[in-house]
Amino acid sequence: MTMRAALRAYPTLLRVGLAEAVAYRAEMLVWMLTTTMPLVSLALWHAVAESGPIGRFGPRELTSYFLAGLIVRQVTSSWVVWEMNQEIRTGTLSLRLLRPIHPLLGYSAENLAALPIRGALSLPVALAMLFLGGSEGVSRFLDDPTLVPMLIAALVGAWLITFLLMCAIGALGFFMESSSSVFEVYLGLFFALSGYLFPLEFLAARAPWVMGATRALPFYYQLGFPIELMLGLLDRRAALRGLAIEWAYVAFFYLLATRLWRLGMRRFGAYGA
């Protein structure tokens, strides 16, 4: 299918994906709850920060950080690895392969289609809390409109890294019996190194080299970077450098995922279907 034909088909894929997402109401709610961990982290770190700020982060800054984290998680999450694993193992991937559109495009539409609902249900609460908190970061963000396009680019990049990285892990299912164990390893690294459990700046005093390493790894660009951009914690130069690294990772994971897919297709057994 040509790219033009794929683009013509994409709105319908999104519409049908949204209809499916609405059909799976209970499942959707449970999945959304799994991305509310930042609220737990917020409660913990809030308690710690009450006895004195940690670096730049007092209780108010921490509130902003984790609520922004909740927003970024909601709008950049993807669950394609589970679907790919299941479909490769059971052979139901065959049904996707028979359609004249690349299966990764189909998966992307299904994942993106659910985002409006996730956003609609979670954003108002988080935004209201952010504004009521009167965080300096928020006002700085609103005062500088040039941050808007950068933030959009950072969020799109974060989603693409997450989606493509999951596609790459999912495609490992062609080579091993299940790639979900690899995904568990990824998840551990993501939690530790993305800024999910705590702002990575906390590492600056005690383990500066670890913090330096996080800037070179992809996980920070999936979460910590868009949060910091959203809260105005980065100057223009740091933001542009971050975007360049983030999009380089997008390109890298695109090549990795598509390469693994092509190699994996040769090994696909289409068992059971």
Binding site: M1, A5, R8, A9, T12, V16, A19, P100
Partner: peptide
Amino acid sequence: ETFALNRAVYD
């Protein structure tokens, strides 16, 4: 809905 999806992907 599947019919509509197929209309789109088969162009």
